[in-house]
Amino acid sequence: MNLTISGHHLEVTPALREYVLTKLDRVTRHFDQVVDINILLTVEKLTEKERRQKAEVTLHVKGKDIFVEQSHEDLYAAIDQLMDKLDRQVCRHKDRLQNHHHQSTKRMDAGAV
């Protein structure tokens, strides 16, 4: 698994990197077939009142790219909400992969046929 954490108008500190990695463990625990993860942390300086922190993730799994972005005033809150969204999308993708297969005839009930 390739992991890239980068910052735009922001220096990615070791504490911030460690926080992202601990939050990302929850996602990789649900679905381990992740090929590539790109994380972009951004500070948007529109005005002093509307300073927004934005976090984006592009997760490349076999056959699909999952993109999630979240903005908040606090970067840590944006990362928390981002990982919640990403976890839901990864679980949904995993369910789609597992539910796509039909039940084998060997396991079907004799009365249901």
Rank of each mutant, 00 (worst) to 15 (best):
R96W: 08
R107I: 09
V68W: 07
V57R: 07
T58Y: 00
H102F: 15
D84A: 07
D80P: 04
E69C: 08
A78P: 03
D84I: 07
T58I: 03
A78Y: 06
R96A: 10
Q53I: 04
H101V: 14
L82P: 00
R96P: 00
F67C: 07
K106Q: 13
Y76Q: 14
D65M: 01
L86K: 06
M108C: 06
L75F: 05
Q89L: 09
L97P: 01
E69W: 09
D87P: 00
N99M: 13
H93E: 07
L59W: 02
K106E: 15
V61F: 03
L59I: 05
K94M: 12
R88F: 06
Q53W: 02
K54Q: 06
T58S: 01
E69D: 14
L86F: 08
L82H: 01
N99K: 15
Q98C: 01
M83A: 07
A77T: 08
M83N: 03
D65K: 05
T105Y: 03
S71G: 11
V68T: 12
I79D: 04
L86V: 06
V68N: 06
L82E: 01
D65S: 06
T58P: 01
K106D: 13
Q81C: 04
L86S: 05
Q53Y: 10
R107T: 13
H100R: 15
K64R: 09
D80Y: 05
M108I: 09
Q81N: 13
D95K: 14
D84W: 01
H100N: 12
K54W: 05
M108H: 04
Q53F: 09
D84K: 09
L75N: 03
N99L: 12
L86G: 05
C91E: 11
Q103C: 08
L59Y: 01
K62H: 15
D65W: 03
E56P: 01
M108D: 05
D65P: 02
N99V: 09
T105I: 08
R107N: 14
S104G: 14
S104R: 15
Q103A: 13
H93K: 03
G63C: 11
E69V: 06
L97S: 02
K106Y: 14
M108Q: 11
D74W: 00
G63F: 11
L97Y: 00
D74C: 02
V68M: 07
D80K: 08
L82D: 00
L59F: 08
